[in-house]
Computed example of a mutant assay.
Amino acid sequence: MTYTGKGRFAFYAKRYSRRKASIRLRLLEPMAAMRDLGVKVRLYPKVRGPQGLDAVVISKAFGRGAEKAIRAVRKSGCGLIFDICDNRFANNRVKGSAKHARRTNMLLTQADIVTVPTAVMGDLLAASAPDIADRIRVVPDMLEDVSALGDMRPSFLERRRLRRLRDFLDDHSDALHLVWFGNNMTGISGVGQLDDAVARLKAFAARHPVTLTIINNKPAVYREASKGWDIPSFYMPWSLIAFPAALKMHRAAIIPVSRNDYTAGKSINRPATAIMAGLGVIADSIASYEELRPFIALDDWEEGLARYAFRWDAEQPRLTQAREHLDRHYGRQHVAERWAHVLEEAGARKSAG
């Protein structure tokens, strides 16, 4: 699809912090890429409102500010897109919050289009909000460009943390260095759900030593979870600038997945981030990961650990092919064009009205 150059668009979010992956990959980076295509897109002008816009994207925002913006957009007659990258209904069920589930339903059903990162995510949302089924459009996550992040200079504290990580890895120089990174969702995903994966690592360590680095922002959860791990592990606080350097100190990322309605619709982002940084990946499969099966270790932890511990050089052609595959299907221009197509579709509703 080639962008026709029609329309003016804006993205609304509660905050625009690059520290949040969903803001980077589903708002800031897509906006920058769309501007390169000539799309007239900006942050939502909260004071002026939607005047002069053809469509507005509400980016994973569920508070009063989002409600206010939605009311203004509906009143103006311009198109409304709600972008959501997680199954919030599953999150609400875990928290026992019927009130928040109703609120999520109310916000989504007001949109002309609901954008999601995967088809499975769309199906899961439609199961809880049937009215949106025919409004769902898939727009992939923008790939995390860790090389660009690595261009920023780390602070003194970040450099100190990176040195401590390097010292830890050097103390276990004969080990297979593994890393897990991600957010915690209590009872669904995160460090607290790593025990089964660590048991696999411990079993493999009888053949070859391993280390495990945890990168996230929940040190207390790590301390509690790691008490019974019995393998060398290290906690690294996540930061936008230090993350690329920390990631590249490892040989492979592990991505165990607790299968549930929250994780089932997740995008390819986590294995893609590791692959683009030059790492191998050992993961449990979900639908979005299947296309990577020829290149990484899915559902075969013992063999995957052996591949990366003993046959690293032989893995390089596969990982090169994986990076080429990701660039071909999730590259900057491809995702920007997909967003532009959806924005134009929503904007056309205003013209038709």
Score class of each variant (00 low, 15 high):
residue 258 S to V: 11
residue 75 K to R: 13
residue 211 T to S: 15
residue 101 A to G: 13
residue 105 N to Y: 08
residue 328 R to W: 03
residue 160 R to Y: 13
residue 18 R to I: 07
residue 280 G to C: 12
residue 105 N to I: 04
residue 137 R to G: 05
residue 270 R to K: 15
residue 268 I to K: 03
residue 119 A to Q: 00
residue 226 S to A: 15
residue 293 R to F: 02
residue 68 K to A: 12
residue 205 A to W: 00
residue 216 N to L: 09
residue 340 A to S: 03
residue 94 V to R: 09
residue 168 F to I: 14
residue 190 G to A: 07
residue 81 I to R: 02
residue 240 L to G: 14
residue 319 L to S: 01
residue 4 T to G: 12
residue 326 L to K: 02
residue 74 R to K: 15
residue 144 E to F: 07
residue 323 R to L: 08
residue 284 D to C: 03
residue 81 I to V: 08
residue 136 I to N: 01
residue 134 D to E: 12
residue 242 A to W: 15
residue 259 R to I: 14
residue 201 L to A: 00
residue 351 S to P: 01
residue 131 D to W: 07
residue 255 I to R: 02
residue 205 A to F: 00
residue 333 Q to M: 01
residue 252 A to H: 10
residue 268 I to V: 04
residue 48 R to E: 14
residue 292 L to G: 03
residue 331 G to C: 07
residue 312 W to L: 13
residue 116 V to M: 04
residue 11 F to P: 06
residue 119 A to V: 01
residue 23 I to W: 05
residue 158 E to G: 13
residue 205 A to Y: 01
residue 78 C to H: 02
residue 218 K to P: 10
residue 248 K to L: 11
residue 80 L to M: 03
residue 322 A to L: 02
residue 167 D to H: 11
residue 166 R to Q: 15
residue 118 T to F: 02
residue 106 M to G: 04
residue 261 D to R: 14
residue 2 T to A: 11
residue 13 A to H: 08
residue 146 V to P: 07
residue 8 R to Y: 07
residue 140 P to A: 01
residue 49 G to N: 06
residue 304 G to H: 04
residue 84 I to H: 05
residue 294 P to S: 11
residue 140 P to G: 00
residue 2 T to E: 13
residue 66 A to Y: 03
residue 19 R to H: 11
residue 342 V to E: 07
residue 123 D to S: 10
residue 1 M to W: 08
residue 153 R to Y: 11
residue 314 A to K: 03
residue 216 N to V: 05
residue 312 W to N: 09
residue 308 Y to R: 03
